[in-house]
């Protein structure tokens, strides 16, 4: 099709970049933009008025009298402040655990004192039954370590099923629909922007982890990695300085897609009235007001358009590199 020529794709992708740039700019400048109304000030004299229908409300008001334009601007800020950090954090977390799982697999071993120390501290930190037991186990680990150190004996070690743990956790998270998982967790943890950020991060890392792991499986047997090992560089250094940078390449494509997914998820949560506090402007929450006033098309259409264009742009951005290479 003529529409899908490389030139058209490149043109549309630059448009996507432009749109995302505008969204970023608006998000950054939202507090200083000369908006006629704040997003949380209801104009009680103008409830659900259509665009250009009331003084100063260029895009109309929602059923609670809030200015739609202000909500769009501050909603962009919320979207950026929530989805960008969450996507980056999920990518970092996924890259670390996926990279480690791909590099070491289930073969690496850990000395027993470290096992005891880690297990004990974990037990205490998670406040499992009898937390002092955890501290006792950790102290035991330290004691065993010192004992072996004094006698200059080699520590006994147990294997770490790193790959199995990481992929098992990722698969477990993937088996539960993400929306259901986030809704269930949000119900327990309450609502706040930092809380939601943590929640989105913890539920979004499996995809980057899988991609980085798959790439790491390929990278770890490449000659330059073998050469680094043969040169006597420690496995940790080989992993961090030589293998991981090459294994991160799939994230360049995955990051915009992850952001698009998170943007959709945040809007869905806000539409359902879960997640963000009611006074935090959100495109999803603005769309939800259509339920109170079905005739207020502007309260649905404008945020929906912003959301659709942003998600399409992020999807398009993920293909920008391959288009440039063509």
């Amino acid at each position: 099709m003529a529409l899908l020529t490389p030139a058209f794709r490149l043109w549309s992708q630059w448009l996507a970049v432009l749109w995302l740039g505008v969204v970023l700019l608006v998000a950054a400048l939202a507090p200083v933009l000369p908006l006629p109304y704040s997003p949380n000030s209801p104009d009680l004299a103008n409830i659900a008025t259509p665009p250009l229908g009331a003084a100063g409300h260029w895009l109309g008001t929602d059923p609670q009298g809030r200015d739609v334009l202000s909500i769009l601007v501050f909603g962009a800020r919320t979207a950026v402040l929530l989805t960008l950090p969450a996507a980056v954090l999920a990518a970092v977390l996924g890259a670390l655990v996926g990279g480690a799982a791909g590099f070491w697999g289930n073969a690496t071993r850990l000395a027993v004192p470290y096992w005891l120390l880690g297990g004990g501290v974990g037990w205490w930190a998670l406040q499992l039954p009898i937390p002092l037991l955890g501290l006792g186990v950790a102290a035991g680990g330290l004691g065993v370590g010192l004992l072996f150190g004094v006698r200059k004996q080699r520590f006994p070690s147990w294997p770490i099923p790193l790959n199995a743990v990481v992929m098992g956790t990722a698969t477990t998270l993937d088996t539960v629909p993400r929306l259901v998982l986030v809704v269930a967790m949000a119900a327990g943890t309450g609502v706040s922007i930092p809380g939601l950020l943590v929640l989105l991060t913890l539920t979004s890392w499996p995809l980057p982890a899988r991609l980085v792991r798959a790439q790491m499986l390929r990278v770890r047997i490449l000659p330059f990695v073998e050469a680094a090992r043969a040169a006597g560089i420690s496995p940790q250094r080989v992993w961090l300085h030589h293998a991981l940078p090459h294994a991160l390449q799939p994230l360049r494509t995955a990051l915009p897609l992850s952001m698009a997914g998170l943007l959709g998820l945040e809007s869905t949560l806000s539409f359902l009235g879960i997640g963000l506090p009611p006074d935090v402007a959100s495109w999803g929450r603005l769309m939800a007001t259509i339920r109170n006033e079905p005739s207020a098309w502007w309260a649905f259409t404008f945020p929906a358009l912003c959301l659709i264009i942003s998600i399409i742009s992020l999807n398009s951005l993920s293909r920008l590199r391959s288009t440039l290479e063509e």
């Binding site: 949380n40 209801p42 059923p63 609670q64 009298g65 506090p277 009611p278 006074d279």
Partner: peptide, 23 residues
């Protein structure tokens, strides 16, 4: 919605005189 609007209006008015309100 009635209660939400009243709470939102109170929050906005209180903010004008410097009283923080959480909904």
């Amino acid at each position: 919605t009635l209660f939400a609007t009243a709470a939102l209006q109170f929050q906005a008015a209180a903010a004008q005189i410097g009283v923080p309100v959480t909904l």
